[in-house]
């Protein structure tokens, strides 16, 4: 099952992931994924440090953005409109039970997606994510419940990059974040980008068909 949720608050998409994880663990559904964009939010993962948030609560309020703690791996990051989030819910028990290999697969999804726009992107050893010319364009932070995954991959497509100056992204100093739009110097159609990202994810992760706009989760539960 593939769910395209459109623009969501972080919590809504998180709840949808948790429902899919529960149903996947019970065997009610096959490997699935959610694609969405979030309203502006900073999230800090389990290995994150508060000092990587450079703005105070007043500055955050002015820009209409919150900071929430989440149960993925990794440090602090920003999500906002124009960034595509891919949240695969796949059972790694059937895929060799290897969290790191799974993260390399998510990098492949982003690299193939960028290739489809003619961009050469790369991995950097020891720095999970996807990079173009030394700048980071895609970030990864995953979670698993007994090998069924949640959280996943964010790709900066056409996002307001100024928010990233309010944090040390991923806890790294001197890191420059970029986006597909910045690299190409043109506006990007988000709907088309979402379709391309789904195609790349289906190829790499082998997730099945059936794209739903909106969430049929309530009806299916």
């Amino acid at each position: 099952m593939i769910l395209n949720l459109g623009l969501t608050d972080y919590e809504k998409a998180y709840l949808a992931q948790c429902q899919l994880v529960s149903r996947r663990r019970l065997g009610e559904i096959g490997d699935s994924m959610i694609i969405t964009e979030h309203n502006p939010v900073f999230t800090i993962g389990r290995t994150g440090r508060r000092e990587n948030m450079l703005a105070d609560s007043r500055q955050m309020r002015k820009r209409g953005v919150r900071l929430i703690e989440v149960d993925r791996g990794g440090d602090i990051t920003f999500h906002g409109p124009g960034q595509l989030l891919l949240y695969p819910v796949v059972d790694l028990k059937a895929r060799g039970r290897d969290l790191h290999r799974y993260m390399r697969d998510l990098e492949s999804v982003a690299i193939n997606f960028l290739n489809s726009y003619g961009i050469i992107a790369e991995r950097i050893d020891g720095k999970t994510g996807v990079w173009v010319g030394g700048s980071k364009v895609a970030s990864i932070g995953v979670g698993a419940k007994d090998w069924v995954t949640f959280h996943g991959l964010s790709v900066n497509v056409d996002i307001d990059l100024s928010y990233f100056s309010m944090i040390y992204p991923c806890g790294m100093r001197g890191i420059k974040m970029t986006s597909l739009a910045e690299i190409l110097g043109v506006d990007i159609d988000l709907n088309m980008a979402a379709e391309k990202l789904i195609v790349c994810a289906k190829r790499v992760l082998g997730v099945g068909d059936g794209i739903f706009a909106g969430t049929p989760l309530g009806a299916a539960a």
Binding site: G45, R46, T47, D71, R72, G73, G74, L99, H100, Y102, M103, T128, I140, G141, V142, G143, A144, K145, D146, W147
Partner: peptide
């Protein structure tokens, strides 16, 4: 937690 992944 290992690298950027959590495991329950």
């Amino acid at each position: 937690v290992t690298d950027k992944a959590t495991f329950n």
